[in-house]
């Protein structure tokens, strides 16, 4: 399964389909699954969960395109078309940054898994992995919150843009935690996904 997955994952058709499927996943997570926040009567959508999952599982390029495009499509379908170009850029960069940070570690981990018999032990030593994932989450959050603040300030002023910062931070943190937990759960339940990182 491993070698065949690797052959498939380098083909252009595989890349196109994986980006399309993950774009659709991001759009569905953004549109469909909304957790209400009682005090503000607002919602947290799970689009960021899908973006971090894609970055951790499929790598930076897939996360760049599917993260940006998926949230842009969700904006388009939910009547917030004016946000679509902004989401395309911001969430794309968020996924790219998170993916780039974990990339080196995942490639190294894959080489270890291929070369050493103690690969299972390597997998269990998750301290460094968590730190790198945390760094990816932090950079992703800074990019998303910072760029939304800047674009909001340009569109409707500094005051309302600053008001949105706490909500965006909560959404991004939930996205990172959810994305990390989902990556672990999916890798555990369906190990071939480990070979799909591009």
């Amino acid at each position: 399964m491993t070698s065949s997955s690797k052959n498939i994952s380098t083909s252009p058709a595989y890349r196109i389909v994986s980006i399309s499927v993950l774009t659709a996943v991001t759009a569905v997570f953004t549109l469909l699954i909304r957790i209400p926040i009682a005090p503000t009567r607002g919602y947290i959508n799970l689009g960021d969960v899908a973006i971090f999952f894609t970055a951790f599982t499929f790598g930076p390029i897939t996360a760049l395109i599917s993260g940006g495009l998926g949230t842009a499509i969700a904006d388009l379908l939910s009547g917030y078309a004016q946000w679509a170009p902004i989401s395309l850029v911001i969430h794309g960069l968020q996924g790219l940054a998170a993916g780039l940070i974990v990339r080196k570690h995942i490639i190294k981990f894959r080489q270890n898994a291929d070369n050493t018999a103690e690969s299972d032990e390597h997998r269990e030593k998750g301290g460094r992995k968590i730190l790198i994932s945390l760094a990816a989450g932090l950079v992703g959050t800074i990019i998303m919150v910072g760029l939304y603040f800047l674009s909001g300030a340009a569109l409707y002023g500094i005051g309302p843009a600053a008001f949105e910062i706490p909500g965006n931070i909560v959404q991004c943190v939930v996205g990172f935690v959810g994305g990390y937990m989902l990556t672990r759960a999916v890798v555990k339940a369906y190990p071939p996904v480990r070979d799909l990182f591009l």
């Binding site: 595989y14 196109i16 389909v17 499927v21």
Partner: peptide, 16 residues
């Protein structure tokens, strides 16, 4: 969500 993701990911090689 884990089940949804696995089902979605599994369609990728076939669709490719």
């Amino acid at each position: 969500l884990t089940s949804v993701l696995i089902k979605s990911v599994k369609t990728i090689p076939v669709m490719a």
